[in-house]
Amino acid sequence: MDQIMKVNELSVVYGKGCDYCRDSNNPLEKNRCPHCMAVCAVRDISLELYDSEILGVVGESGSGKTTLMKALYFDIIPTKGSAYLAAYNNGETDIFSVSSQQQRAIRNNLLGMVYQNPVMGLLMNYSSGGNVAQKLIAAGHRNVAAMQERTAQLLDHMEIPLNRVKEPPRNFSGGMQQRVQISKAIANNPPVLLLDEVTTGLDLSVQAKVLDLIRMVQKQLNISVIVVSHDLAVIRMLSDRTVVMLDGQIVEHGFTDQILEDPQHWFTQTLVHSLI
């Protein structure tokens, strides 16, 4: 299988950091450095994403999942590490080393992001159609009729009624807002989609629907997805492979079935056994 994305030893430190916590072999108190008190949210994480697979990232709250996603989407500047995208310069250039203008282009053309909180990803006072169209405009589309057709198609795909396309997302329920965000994220068929706790805070029936839609879209468009969740049920349903994060580090990785049926690390065992 082709590699779509590769992340090498990515670290995000909130605070100055010192020689002690820069060495990832030294133990921390949870994720806080006992010497300089910096929070090492993500610590030397390396992972690969393959063609049209869904990679699950699971871990307790505060384990660095969201920070990892935000770093990959250029919302946070990583402290160290590199990442390569097959679709960007044949995967030969570290996307963290290029200019902010280039990063913006990568974001607009090659990545899609769905935030846990729709306020982060949507303009709440603009029409839902406009929100989706913004991603198309950013990718260089300049034909209104074509964009309107495409946004209508995307929102319809996400089961947003067509007569509500002109309404702003602030009029919508949480589940609908999330579906508008997904439409926006996949608007120009990005090769990589990042989903950050998409279903958190939604009730179970809406959760199931959103997950169904994600799976359907992923199959149809053959995109590679990184899905972050603290909910093992979501991970079980969506992902092919899973990594388990604890205190900013990956403690276990493998096929999802393997991890859920035969967890090796004590933390994964606790996580799996605390499933109700």
Partner: peptide, 10 residues
């Protein structure tokens, strides 16, 4: 700085 003007067009 990033010539990110999609909002102006929006």
């Amino acid at each position: 700085g990033d010539t990110e003007y999609s909002a102006a067009w929006l």
